[in-house]
Amino acid sequence: MASELLTSGLDKALLSDDTERLRITPEGIQWVQRCLDVIEERSKLMQSKGMTKFNFVFGVSNSLMVAWSFGALPGYFWIVYVIEVFVLLPVRWSRMIQREPKEHLYWLDFCWCANFVGVVLLIILLFYEVDLDVQKWAFCAAWGLGNGPLLCAIAVLGNSLLFHDFDNASSVLIHLFPSLVMYEMGWNREAVQEAFPSIFTYHFFNDIHLWHDIYNNAAMSYFAWLLPYAGWLLTCGMSAPSCGYDTIFHFTMRGAGGHVTSKILRVPPEEHKELVRANSFPRSYALVYLTIHAILVLLSIPVALLCYADKKIHICLCGSMVLLTIYNASSRYTFYMVSSYGQALRRELGIPLTRGASAILES
């Protein structure tokens, strides 16, 4: 692609002498330099996003380790999850606070908070004796949220298992790992109990009721997050961008979610574009966002009930979501390696994406 653009771009800059030999004019040299500058800038951009040898080796090795431990160490997989959190999330945090606007308010979103609470509960179980009724309540809530909203979010958000990208790896972690952990704790509970007999007793497992225990506990946990988050978003959160901070709400409204919200509220396209440009949205946008968020979460919790009803359904859903993250990643890598440089050159040279490189001769 790049060589074709260079050849076409030099067509009007090449001169023929008496010996019918071609030589590059100063104008041609400028074309070459422009193309090289675009390619170098694109390479630097990819490296700034983490595409380095170290990150790629770490990402591939980490993925292989997780896959191996899921099958070989079912009793200890929850420890792997905790370790992954303490390794990946500090890296994610350092990137969030360096960006402009700063992104660490993203961690107030439900998926992040659910993982933080889950990790804290696992650490508490490791060091303190917890009442059996509390264990049952927490297990049911974790089952409902981990195998419902968090797992389904992979498909909704389009998570990608990019080996070099810690941001995307962290997103896969918080959405996929809770379901994998609950699979091990539910269907391989004998191995978990054998590894940690003083922590996990599972006397309650066969007494769990799908709707009363799993659905109700998961829904109550969700609303325990939703109510304070809604209060914060409708007050302080709306003005976060003016203070140099971004939020998941504003990020969503600048994208496809904003178009859906504007259509629901019947906001004219021109007015919505102005709201996006200013990164300032009315509270009506936030109310619609919170309502849709709540509906999607409550509708996805029943997926967790299916996971509890049948082991095969659970592992198939987990496997499907893993394959989806790989598929999404393959699309991204294909773009990076095949299309991104060509598109960057086209933008620089003013060639429309729908035209061939010969369009440069018409300019």
Rank of each mutant, 00 (worst) to 15 (best):
M1S: 14
S3Q: 05
S8Q: 15
L10K: 08
D17W: 00
E20C: 10
L22V: 12
L22I: 13
R23W: 09
T25F: 00
Q30A: 13
Q30N: 13
Q30P: 10
L36S: 01
R42H: 11
S43F: 11
M46F: 10
M46Q: 13
Q47K: 05
G50R: 03
F56K: 07
F58A: 05
S63L: 11
L64A: 14
V66S: 05
W68Q: 04
A72M: 13
G75L: 02
G75P: 05
V85F: 15
V87L: 05
L88F: 04
L89G: 04
V91K: 10
W93Y: 05
I97T: 13
Q98T: 02
D109N: 10
C111F: 10
A114C: 15
N115I: 13
N115R: 13
F116R: 09
V117Y: 14
L125E: 08
V130Y: 00
L132V: 06
K136H: 08
A138L: 07
A138Q: 00
F139L: 04
F139W: 08
C140E: 09
A141H: 04
W143F: 06
W143G: 07
G144P: 10
G146L: 06
G148V: 01
P149W: 01
I154P: 13
A155R: 05
G158P: 03
D165E: 10
A169L: 14
P178C: 08
E184N: 14
M185P: 09
G186M: 12
W187Y: 12
N188A: 06
S198H: 14
S198T: 12
H203V: 08
H209A: 09
L210Y: 11
W211D: 08
I214E: 06
M220S: 11
Y222S: 12
F223L: 08
Y229S: 07
C236M: 03
G237P: 00
G237T: 01
S239H: 07
A240N: 11
I248H: 14
T252R: 01
A256C: 00
H259P: 07
S262A: 09
I264E: 11
R266T: 03
R266L: 06
P269D: 08
E271C: 01
K273Y: 04
V276C: 06
N279P: 00
A286C: 01
A286W: 00
L290Y: 00
H293G: 05
I295V: 11
L299I: 01
V303W: 12
C307W: 03
L317V: 00
S320P: 10
S320V: 03
T325A: 07
N328Y: 03
Y333S: 07
T334P: 01
T334S: 11
E348F: 01
L353N: 12
S358M: 06
S358E: 13
L361D: 07
L361T: 02
